[in-house]
Design a protein around this nucleic acid. Structure first.
Length: 503
RNA sequence: GUCCCCAUCGUCCAGAGGCCCAGGACGUGGCCCUUUCAAGGCCAAAACGCGGGUUCGAAUCCCGCUGGGGACGCCA
């Protein structure tokens, strides 16, 4: 089995395309097949090397490694269409010689007018066949005279073209709605339908798995396979991924490109697991995970993936469910990895200056406080921001705090606070110890006073719970010149600032 | 407009004629846990688009309608 993913490098890798790539990859990996990456860059204007690099990077990040491709080579290269131009030319000549194709000299303006007329008359807009009757000799003369021409495929009249779609079953089109489409553009580059067929045939692709938007191209391609004398591959058309409003997923719906998800702190395994479940569900009894479980490692997805189990209807992309999966994978991932991945967000908040081992270890030690209550890596620094910055004035203003400050004995308690606190964090135990010491000193105690103050000291209401396992921190070492950590506030630091601000 | 594809809770899926007064997951609501927010646990509400057939029996098969999507480029 040989499958391929064939993006055109005209922008970022979209989650919809990523899902197509994933399904191809899953099928190949589950069947000991070959996954080919081919770059469809015949549109010289819109294709860029940056896009290509970006797409490759995104696929790698997702873990969808390819066996053959532009960077790794393979037995059927080159894997960039712009480097295969000679092949298309030679097959175009073959088609021309066999009468399956002909030169068309129609001006773009005429074509446009024809299309408009068809539309207005309620006919399927298709090429009128004006140049079908231009003979080869005539064509050669006009070409030599400098006329511009495209090569068109001669679509047989009134013919039914059908193919077995692996997800949809029998699909039939009549050639009545298919005009003579362009094989080679006037500047000599192949058009999509032609290039894919030549490449898929030459690369021995056995299964073409792609988006449903290509289903109406399939009859044209089937016709081409026949004319070229190639055996067509098996086709499978995947339903599309839509936004919440049932329109094709686009920027309007928020993040849609793989790189955006990476930027915002999603884990690749969350994205692939989620994407796999749009339009597919594992058959019961097929795997080691419980039948109704949805969280599955990618290798199990590959083992259980089957085209027969792919659904027929379009799916809506649900960011909430993705977030849930991401939370799950953040919790089960190795802490050191999460620390390494989230360090950049600490850097952009200014909490960490450099990703030193010490800084990474410190970030890792903070993870238990944050990781369970956050959707994305990007949100982690926020949850522990109280360790790095403290706004005493704002703390005093906080609801519940201001009132309590006027209670009798409050000033004494607050003044006693800095001395009563020890340890770097105001966790549950140190809070209790603090309360006990304050009581000793001032004779004051009680939830009513302490709790709001504790909240004011630890951060905002709704801040992270601190009584989790937080490893002891060697502040001295961390704050030394080359540790990379910008600063660390201890509970005592905050209590001092708070007391000072109250005064 | 023409052609093609599709149609189960708000969303993603299960359901391949009786197992279904429809099952799971996300989300939502409630309760529990918790001196805060989350997380976690438990419970609940929530769907077979409509109309005709076929059949003893239809979410499941057939037809029509409606609705949604896609395609009709010298884009891919």
């Amino acid at each position: 089995m040989r499958v391929r993913f064939a993006p055109s490098p005209t922008g970022q890798l979209h989650v919809g395309n990523a899902r197509t790539a994933l399904f191809n990859w899953l099928l190949a990996r589950g069947h000991d097949g070959t996954f080919i990456l081919r770059i469809e860059d015949t549109d010289a204007e819109r294709s860029t090397r940056e896009s290509e690099d970006g797409i490759l990077e995104d696929l790698r990040w997702l873990g969808l490694e390819w066996d053959e491709g532009p960077d790794v080579g393979g037995g059927c290269g080159p894997y960039r269409q712009s480097e295969r131009l000679h092949l298309y030319t030679s097959y175009a000549n073959e088609l021309l010689a066999g009468g399956h194709a002909y030169y068309c000299f129609c001006a773009p303006q005429k074509l446009e007018d024809d299309r408009r007329k068809d539309l207005a008359a309620g006919r399927p807009p298709k090429y009128h066949g004006t140049c079908r009757s231009v003979g080869p000799d005539d064509a050669r003369r006009r070409l030599e005279a400098g006329e511009r021409a495209v090569v068109r495929f001669r679509v047989p009249d009134r013919t039914e073209v059908s193919f077995q779609d692996l997800v949809r079953g029998d699909v039939t089109f009549s050639t009545d709605v298919i005009g003579d489409f362009i094989l080679v553009r006037s500047e000599g580059r192949p058009a999509y339908n032609f290039a894919v067929v030549v490449d898929d045939a030459l690369m021995d692709v056995t299964h073409v798995i792609r988006g449903e938007d290509h289903i109406s191209n399939t009859p044209r391609q089937v016709l081409l396979y026949r004319a070229l004398g190639f055996a067509p591959p098996r086709f499978a058309h995947l339903s599309l991924v839509l936004g919440p409003d049932h329109t094709p997923l686009s920027k309007r719906h928020g993040a849609t490109s793989v790189s955006e998800f990476r930027e915002r702190g999603y884990l690749p395994e969350a994205l692939t697991n989620y994407l796999a479940l749009i339009g597919w569900s594992p058959r019961a009894g097929g795997g080691e995970t419980a039948d109704d479980a949805e969280l599955m490692p990618i290798d199990e997805l590959a083992r259980r993936f089957a085209l027969e189990d792919v659904g027929h209807s379009a799916g809506v992309f649900d960011p909430e469910k993705l977030a849930w999966m991401n939370r799950h994978y953040m919790k089960v991932a190795a802490p050191a990895r999460i620390a390494a991945e989230s360090a950049r967000y600490f850097q952009s908040r200014g909490f960490v200056k450099r990703k030193t081992d010490a800084a990474l270890a410190y970030v890792e030690s903070l993870l238990p406080m944050a990781v369970a209550s956050v959707d994305r890596l990007e949100e982690i620094p926020d949850r522990v921001a109280f360790l790095f910055e403290y706004d005493a004035a704002a703390a005093i203003e906080r609801p519940g705090v201001a009132e309590v400050l006027h209670e009798t004995g409050a000033p004494e308690v607050i003044a006693a606070l800095p001395e009563a606190i020890d340890g770097p964090l105001l966790d549950r135990d140190s809070f209790r110890a603090m309360a006990a010491r304050v009581k000793e000193k001032t004779g004051r105690k009680g939830k009513a006073l302490f709790h709001p103050i504790r909240v004011a000291l630890t951060g905002e209401r709704g801040g992270p719970e601190l009584d989790l396992a937080v490893p002891a921190i060697d502040r001295g070492a961390l704050l030394s010149a080359d540790a990379g950590v910008a600063r660390i506030l201890s509970a005592r630091d905050r209590a001092r600032a708070f007391a000072a601000a109250v005064r």
